[in-house]
Amino acid sequence: MGEPGTPELLSLEELEASGGLRTGRKHILSILVENKPGVLTRIAGLFARRGFNIDTLTVGPTDDERYSRITLTLDGALHPIDQVTKQLHKLVNVLKIRDLEPAETVARELALFKLAVDGASRAEVLQICEIFRGKVVDVSRRSITVEITGTTDKIEAFDRMLRPFGLVEMMRTGEIAISRGRAET
């Protein structure tokens, strides 16, 4: 590819190819950080600077009040992920980063589905909820709201089943994840 300082015209294909970071492999990064203002901005900024699109992001307290846990999922080839995790390590407020291996990880997400369901189809919806171990958390004459937890796949399957009944809106928390076995994440 030509250098920006030369008059050679660049094709759009060339420009797009050079930014080809997304490969479809999903990563779950679990990041332990100091509970201080601005930490999330620093981390998000590092990803943005390298053209990453973060798919999900959750932040919450840990068993130690000095620290918070950030779990984020994204697509990327292994190499750019490697570079970005090294850069994350350089942040003074970041203590630990794990690129979690899907097979050795338990990941869960919570979702809320609000459905425009009246009397006629309510029974059928409740039946599906039961199969997915969903829980009804709100009901009105013209709607029902269901809470469900599980893997991303399960929530997507639930979504596909319920959508035809009239989805008003849906909210997802993004995944949190913990490593399997005795070892700490």
């Binding site: 203002p37 601005g38 901005t41 620093r42 900024g45 600077r49 350089k90 942040l91 003074v92």
Partner: peptide
């Protein structure tokens, strides 16, 4: 200042 300089610093802090 924190926001403007964030990508340009090794570290930064605003005191509270």
């Amino acid at each position: 200042v924190m926001g403007i300089t964030m990508p340009a610093v090794k570290h930064s802090v605003m005191l509270r």
